[in-house]
Design a protein around this nucleic acid. Structure first.
Length: 654
DNA sequence: GCCGTTTTCGGCCCGACTGTTTTCAGTCG
């Protein structure tokens, strides 16, 4: 686990303990918010902790939390956390994970009924004494029992690549319903997160009952959890198709396999934009937008943007006309923003880019002045742009320096920008296609270049090539290149980075290759210091072009390496090595926050499909989404370069 | 615990839903 992740976990634990202990809830919220900030922070926070002033510049981090970060960096722990932990029975914390149980209820169980863990909660349910507690009726208990069952099944977040096809199938099916005016999936899926909790489908229709009925009766629906007039909720099968085995047969997951929760929400057509924004999130992004609305004398909810008149009843219920509601674009515009791509809506600087311009807009806004009771929420990052700083702090707080960036969001990478695949496997190692088939498929996608990069000798399990086989393979690639027109076929290798950082082939062999992708495949639980040295050695190797799946993580299966990313980024920039975003949905490695860090550090990135099977080209969308979440532009993605530029870069390392 | 272009105290985003209640607390997204 990375330092940032460990610190974020600790801060989040402090927040949860504070809630359980009945502290002021805003204190807990502050710790929780700091946890999310640290988690998404592109630089290693330990390195950043050497400069307290830089820490304090980060939005949401004040003196107390800065000290906790410094304490964690120097001692590896946080005393406050230990003290809070000692006050609460260890078994109580997992109860917070139960759906429908919040800190207030769990605290009440603990204080009033002596519940200390799941077992003692079960006991008061079994003997019925739970019914004597405040607000505990038969239905409430029934829900708790269901939540316990759910958590025992292991309710992990699902990889995007498993969930997205399910969502698309629902959308495609429901679109056929004639009454449907608008339909889209929203939530973290629309933002392109690497894992999702559930699928939110939004629909605007003139026949809510009919669409809900169609939704509940789709063939992949296994259970109906709730069904109302405007909301329905089901669990649907993941119709997950495995990559075909060698004999060409296709395995489809059985109907009893894993399921995912899908929620359908019916919204009024005139509120489509507001509802889509609201349900797309993120929560943090929405909070910032609503704070901004308040400063402009407006209020934003899922029905639209309204004048803020201080009445308690929501404006849409009083027939107040919205200022904007039907499209996302008009709502963002009224708030002084261009439309923000969903992948950026994480409150990681996407709103601050406009901050300088928007403070001028505030004065010119045609709406009434903000009320005195609602304080301005202008973030720290809108203060003076950081300038003239030296040392680690100068590069570190990307969030804090966002105001210094141009006032226009970058033009993010798109699927159509990709013109080259630089990481692919053939039957020579563990792929399914011949060189010619691989090249033909790449050409059909409009690519100008494909690099054939089979595994190196140490990857025995993947049928890695000995030096002799590699040399013959290079000849075969050259021959195929002369046969297939309209695409450049490059001879490459995905070379193992051995545990000590040496590469799996000698330099004279590597020098014969057009493209070297160096990737870690074994020893993926290494100590971070060792891992850093290992990857740095590969990046500094003069013949390496791309660092492949740098951490080796597998989503929900393997954490992978936790190198010091700041060092990795600066080495990659210095040695002109592209860092890979491996587009396979099981990897997505680098992940979004790392991409942002690499971009801020000035690195180039590669988005590659690591093609083994024909269908693997389709994983490109996940790599693109991950790149967009990391603010990747086509200029910084080697796969989006012209053939001339790409080939010149590759040759520059020969 | 953080924050500030009415600032160093007194606030802190918004609404739906649920289940328990007869007006609301707690949870969720």
């Amino acid at each position: 686990m990375s330092n940032n992740q460990e610190l974020a976990d600790r801060l989040a634990r402090i927040a949860r303990l504070q809630e359980l202990l009945g502290f002021d809830k805003f204190r807990a919220i502050s710790n929780e918010r700091a946890a999310r900030t640290v988690e998404g922070f592109p630089e290693d926070v330990i390195a950043l902790s050497k400069d307290r002033a830089a820490l304090l510049k980060i939005d949401g981090i004040g003196p107390k939390i800065a000290d906790k970060i410094i304490e964690f960096a120097t001692t590896g722990g946080i005393k406050e956390l230990d003290e809070l932990t000692a006050e609460v029975p260890a078994g109580l914390m997992p109860l917070l994970e139960l759906n429908g149980l919040g800190p207030k209820t769990v605290r009440m169980f603990w204080q009033d009924a002596g519940v200390t863990d799941l077992a003692s909660l079960r006991k008061i349910i079994a003997d019925g004494s739970i019914l004597n507690l405040p607000r505990m009726g038969a239905k409430a208990v029934e829900k708790i029992v269901a939540s316990i069952a759910m958590i025992e099944e292991g309710d992990k977040r699902l990889a995007l690549g498993l969930a997205l096809p399910v969502a698309e199938a629902f959308v495609a099916q429901l679109k056929k319903h004639k009454s449907v005016k608008q339909i889209a999936y929203a939530g973290s899926m629309r933002r392109g997160k690497d894992t999702i909790g559930d699928i939110d489908i939004l629909v605007a229709t003139s026949d809510a009952a009919g669409v809900a009925e169609a939704f509940r009766t789709m063939p992949q629906v296994r259970h109906i959890l709730a069904s109302g007039e405007t909301r329905s909720s089901v669990r649907a099968a993941l119709k997950y198709v495995e990559p075909p085995p060698a004999d060409g047969t296709t395995i489809i997951a059985p109907v009893t396999g894993p399921t995912v929760q899908v929620d359908l929400k019916v919204v009024p057509l005139e509120s489509w934009g507001a509802a889509l924004m609201y349900f797309t999130g993120s929560k943090e992004h929405n909070v910032r937008l609503r704070e901004r609305a308040l400063r402009m004398g407006l209020t934003l909810n899922e029905y639209g943007l309204f004048p803020d008149d201080d009445e308690k009843e929501p404006p849409h219920k009083r027939g107040i006309k919205s200022i904007a509601s039907s499209t996302e674009e008009e709502i963002y515009a009224k708030l002084g923003f261009n439309w923000i791509p969903p992948e950026l809506r994480e409150d990681r600087g996407e709103l601050d880019i406009f901050a300088l311009a928007s403070s001028e807009d505030d004065a010119a806004a045609e709406t009434k002045p903000a009320k005195t009771s609602k304080k301005s929420a202008t973030s720290k990052s809108t203060k003076e742009p950081a300038k003239g700083k030296k040392g680690p702090a100068a590069a570190a707080p990307a969030i804090a320096t966002a105001a210094a960036a141009p006032r226009v969001l970058p033009r993010l990478i798109e699927l159509a920008d990709i013109k080259a695949e630089l990481h692919s496997h053939t039957t020579a190692s563990d792929g399914e296609m011949s060189i010619v088939e691989l090249a033909t498929r790449a050409k059909a996608r409009g690519f100008h270049t494909i690099a054939v990069t089979d595994h190196s000798k140490s990857s025995a399990i993947a049928n890695g090539l000995s030096v002799e086989r590699l040399l013959r393979h290079i000849d075969a690639i050259r021959e195929a290149a002369s046969k297939v027109e309209g695409i450049t076929i490059l001879a490459g290798s995905e070379v193992d980075i051995l545990a000590d950082g040496r590469l799996d082939y000698d330099d004279e062999v590597l020098a014969k290759l057009d493209v070297v992708v160096a990737s870690p495949h074994a020893s993926l639980a290494q100590d971070p210091k060792v891992a850093t040295a290992r990857l740095l050695k590969a990046v500094r190797h003069p013949l390496v072009h791309i660092l492949g799946h740098p951490t080796g993580r597998l989503i929900n299966k393997r954490a992978g390496l936790s190198p010091d990313f700041s060092e990795l980024y600066s080495a990659a920039k210095e040695h002109n090595v592209a860092l890979e975003i491996n587009a396979h949905w099981m990897r997505l490695d680098l992940r979004d926050a790392h991409v942002k860090g690499a971009i801020d550090a000035g690195c180039n990135l590669a988005i590659d499909c690591d093609v083994h099977y024909p269908g693997d080209f389709d994983n490109l969308r996940y790599g693109i989404t991950t790149g967009r979440r990391g603010w990747l532009t086509p200029e910084r993605c080697v796969n989006a370069w012209t053939a001339a530029d790409l080939h010149a870069w590759l040759k520059s390392k020969r």
